[in-house]
Design a protein around this nucleic acid. Structure first.
Length: 287
DNA sequence: CTCAGCTCCTGCGGGC
DNA sequence: TGCCCGCAGGAGCTGA
């Protein structure tokens, strides 16, 4: 489900609920999701205070008073619900629009003050892990990540160099978390559309200038999406991974058959499949 | 090393 | 109504 903007939205929702609060109880309802949970997960969480909530790429990192960091990955369908003390009282109660989804509530944390956090993941591609905070950047899931797209290490010169010699389509290159960390299918489609670059173009055959033009496009689309996610958070006060209002602003993703919205372009958004995943683009203005 | 294809899992919507 | 198919926002693993 979530790409960087959705994960950041979840982090921003969780931070005020978790930071400074002690985890009073951890209920782990299955052995793991994509991978087995770390040994003694419940015991290692119980009694710990969350110092700070961070994000790296599509991972949320909770630094705990024990000196360990809890790493969350939401996979395709992961979400986190925040239930206040005065919300639905019993585990498994109707806290979803579709109550049967509650059967995928895999982990539940009860915090000091009574707030409950529920990690729900229908498809179970998500993950939780614990590792020592000082070495968290060396965690196998984090060690090979490229720069943050909203950070200083991501600029035109970097991206042009990262693309050099690559024979893979630029669509696949931007999805490669080692090149830039946090993009997914939606925002790659949107950034390519904004820059007029075909998803089929080989990364290594883009001019340096065109490669560099992707940087502000990526930064802008991510920033706009985070802002839209934040607005939906205020309304629903949930940190679940739903797309915020930004989904109504997609110009390419999911718009097959619709008119291209670029100024002066009379083309039509088309869906193709690249390495097993949908790409939406305008063959007229994206070359 | 690079790259394409497969895989994990469940639910939903469309066509018949 | 039921069945089958394709599709879904991720990303690690395998083998060429």
């Amino acid at each position: 489900m979530p790409e960087l903007p959705e994960v950041e939205t979840v982090r921003r929702g969780l931070a005020p609920a978790m930071e400074g609060k002690t985890i009073l109880r951890a209920e782990i309802r299955r052995d793991g999701l994509r991978w087995p949970f770390p040994p003694r997960l419940a015991e290692r969480l119980t009694g710990q205070r969350t110092l700070v909530m961070r994000r790296r790429a599509k991972y949320i990192l909770s630094d705990l008073s024990s000196g360990e960091t809890l790493l969350w990955h939401l996979g395709m369908s992961g979400r986190v619900l925040i239930l206040d003390g005065d919300g639905p009282a019993q585990p498994g109660s109707f806290h979803y629009a579709h109550p049967h989804l509650a059967k995928h509530d895999h982990v539940e944390l009860t915090l000091e003050g009574g707030t409950r956090l529920i990690f729900n993941d229908v498809r179970r591609f998500g993950a939780l892990d614990l590792a020592p905070t000082p070495r968290i950047d060396d965690h196998p899931l984090l060690a090979n990540l490229g720069p943050e797209p909203l950070g200083n290490g991501f600029d035109g010169a970097y991206l042009a160099a990262a693309f050099a010699g690559r024979n893979t389509p630029v669509k696949a290159a931007l999805l490669d978390q080692r090149i830039v960390a946090g993009l997914g299918n939606i925002y790659v489609c949107e950034a390519l559309h904004r820059t007029g670059i075909s998803p089929k173009r080989k990364a290594g055959r883009l001019s340096a200038a065109r490669a560099a033009s992707l940087v502000p496009a990526i930064r802008n689309v991510l920033t706009e999406a985070i802002e839209a996610g934040g607005s939906s958070l205020r309304d629903y006060r949930q940190a679940d991974g739903e797309l915020g209002y930004f989904q109504h602003r997609f110009q390419a993703y999911g718009r097959a058959g619709k008119a291209c919205t670029q100024d002066g372009c009379s083309g039509q958004i088309t869906r193709i499949v690249q390495s097993g995943r949908s790409s939406f683009y305008c063959p007229t203005c994206q070359r």
